[in-house]
Simulated assay, not measured.
Amino acid sequence: MLGLLLLQVLSSCLWLGHSEVVKTFASCPQFFYEGTFPNDVLEPKNPAYICQRYSNSYHFATLYDRDRRIPVYSAYKYKPGSGKRPHTWSFVEPQLIGNNSFKAMEREWALIKQYKFHFNQIKDSQAVLDDYEKMLGLDRGQLNPSVHQDSTDSKTATFTLTNIVPQDSCLYIRQWNTYESEIMLQLTNTCRTTYVITGAVPGNNYVAEGRVNRPSHIWSAACCLVDIEHRKTWGAIAENDEEQVKLLTLGELEDRLTRLYGREKKVTLFKNACSQQ
């Protein structure tokens, strides 16, 4: 009887461990302005809501498209800093692999060698390193870039494939990099807190032998808290085969995304209180 009770308790613990990938971001609302998430217009058919966990802490949130094997968006607080540059290996998300007790991202080899996962289990659930090694003219584009984080742990956490999309190499190293590294610094110079949601519009083409979607556009939106009473917002978008980033108002970006997704209901990224300036 005692053995059966212990088994039931263990089973409960394993299920609770799997609760990090659920149907809401209830475990990590702090990465969204006033804890309010974007509306459901961007939600894919087979979503995974991931509270990105590394070194026993949450660092950002990602809505992941299981079918296309790319993130829909990542949400985070903009905190650029001089933390030590981490290793640039890429993690995978064991929580996407059925029921298991893992709460945090992990490296592929560790899951296979140490924890006895089969490679096909990982590959069936998400993009893997081998997918990105086969891509030509494309880079691993981070939606939450490491340069927008201050600590070594937060920077390291961005190197997970659930935060990465196939991004045009020229766009990645030039104009989008300029936006991330220089323009964001200029736009946030009066902000005490900035909430960012960066996403990718699914495209019509697939890479890595048809496994991973190549987005048609990369976009980003920001909600800046200047002080208790004042807010400012902006957006940016780029076609994923051109070297041009367009700066927009938040309202213009939401209208553009509504058209790109072909939905009647309008995309809403931030709670209305983050006024559109």
Rank of each mutant, 00 (worst) to 15 (best):
N99F: 09
S154P: 09
T156R: 15
H87N: 15
A104C: 11
Y172P: 01
L161H: 03
Y172F: 05
L171Q: 11
Q142R: 06
Y132W: 11
N120R: 08
I112K: 07
T152R: 15
M135H: 03
S101H: 09
T156V: 11
N144K: 03
W176D: 10
R107M: 09
L161G: 09
I122C: 06
A110P: 00
Q126T: 07
L161D: 06
G137D: 01
R140V: 02
W109C: 13
Y132F: 15
T152H: 12
R140C: 06
T152G: 13
T162S: 10
D153F: 05
L185W: 14
Q186V: 13
P145N: 07
P145E: 08
F117R: 08
N99I: 13
M105C: 02
W109D: 15
Q126C: 05
A127E: 01
I97C: 14
D124F: 12
L129Q: 02
P94I: 02
M135Y: 03
S151D: 12
T152N: 14
E93A: 01
S90F: 15
E180T: 03
P86C: 04
V128S: 03
Q167H: 13
I112N: 03
H118Y: 13
F159K: 00
N144D: 14
P86D: 06
S146Q: 11
S146D: 10
T178L: 11
I173C: 13
T152L: 10
F159R: 02
C170G: 04
K116T: 07
P86L: 02
A157T: 10
D130T: 05
M184V: 02
H148Q: 05
P94D: 04
M135C: 02
S154E: 15
H87I: 14
D124C: 05
Q121M: 11
L185M: 09
K113W: 12
R140A: 06
S151C: 09
Q167M: 15
N120V: 05
V147Y: 13
